[in-house]
Design a protein around this nucleic acid. Structure first.
Lengths: 224, 224
DNA sequence: TTTATTTTTTAGATTAATCTAAATTTTTTA
DNA sequence: TAAAAAATTTAGATTAATCTAAAAAATAAA
């Protein structure tokens, strides 16, 4: 295996790499077979088969029963898929007026279209966006992913304020809830009060006070 | 098989349908196994297998040794793929500044992304274009493909004139040649002289006279 | 530190799409 | 219209991705 960079991966292989990347993000444990099976909605036995194959291609470091990590090349491939996913999301929202909770599925397909020229032109067309519609950073052409430090509302103190800049949870329900209650990316938010009893938080948004649950507070990210 | 419209087709199945449609266009013969094998760059045996499968799904009318035609539903599916292909080509040329000879490959991938909302929004974003960058008509949301009558230069008489509106041959070489010699979609063209010896044609474009071979004349389409 | 539980892997099948080689049918041509 | 040529189909394999059920290893609990 010496033809790393030319190597074209299947849709499925790309999905494995991308999900291993996400599962490994900010965690230094190996990613387990079961964890992968769960996010990919498949069976552990299938995952084992694929891990062997990816290992054969030197895209993951795999040892029986020990889970995996991505190799340098595996990581590059994963980041390239994420770059495409996030750029397409920006396109869908900004140009085609999708809502931020509607983009994921389609972007899951678009992220596997392979054309350097396409993705670089798209990036230019979109004016080199730094983040996708959920506030997640877009890796650049060279695979460099610079993420701003974001803090969940649940870790802030009374009086802190900042801009709503991302989410930790990407489910449609959560995004719709945020939309409905005006907790929109880019808005500024201030902590008014923290209720000890259940950890819910009173915040100030656009001049209105609003209560959010601890669960929401944990999943809403702020740039100070 | 009663769940026609919901039925999701594989990438491969869609490609078969699309190519059968093209092979059958303006021809009333059944499409032969070999013809399909040739355009799809595969073997006749593989085509036979797939035709059986498509026939099973009632997407083609197939009888052993007699070739195929598309059923109503098969045709709808094919047209939907063509619609997507052509809309993406417009996007690539108009928004991402691809040249008309660079779009085909990428559009071959994009055409299989399945989302009604995506394609209809794209169409609106592009302002409901009538044709793709090669002058081929774009089917509407309901699969209606209204094609203007286009005539190859080789069928015109001296003195006729019209607008360059399409091509019969889509190869990169041919498109590059047209580009280089100024035979661009939308330009008006007039027949000055037809050389009996080899069928080449002297045409007037943008005030300049230019000679084109019979081969080129056969593949360049004019709207009168 | 055994035993029980959970996780992971192996073994053996299945499905979609493909292939080669051989057999069959159709078409052409002499 | 019979023989030759071309086109098409069948038979039997292969590859990628998946699955179930059983076996093996790792981890947790008694």
């Amino acid at each position: 295996m010496a033809y790393f960079y030319i190597m074209n991966l299947s849709f499925t292989e790309e999905n494995y790499l991308k999900n291993i990347f996400h599962l490994n993000f900010n965690v230094d444990e190996n990613v387990s077979t079961n964890a992968i099976a769960e996010v990919l909605n498949t069976k552990a036995a299938s995952v084992t088969d694929m891990l062997k194959k990816l290992s054969e291609k030197e895209l993951v470091n795999y040892e029986k029963y020990q889970g995996v990590t991505l190799t340098e090349i595996g990581q590059q491939k994963a980041i390239s898929v994420i770059r495409k996913h996030r750029l397409w999301e920006v396109f869908l929202v900004e140009k085609l007026h999708f809502k931020w909770d509607e983009v994921h599925e389609v972007a899951e397909e678009l992220e596997h279209i392979n054309s350097e020229k396409l993705i670089n032109s798209l990036e230019e067309f979109l004016n080199f966006p730094k983040t996708d519609p959920h506030g997640d950073p877009i890796p650049d052409k060279n695979g460099i992913l610079k993420s701003q430090e974001l803090i969940p509302v649940s870790k802030l103190k009374v009086g802190n304020s900042g801009l709503i800049s991302g989410v930790r949870e990407h489910s449609v329900e959560f995004l719709k809830y945020l939309d409905k209650t005006g907790l929109i990316l880019g808005e500024s938010l201030k902590i008014i009060e923290i209720i000890n009893f259940d950890g819910s938080v009173m915040v100030l948004i656009k001049g209105n006070q609003q209560m959010i649950s601890r669960e929401v507070a944990k999943n809403l990210l702020i740039a100070l």
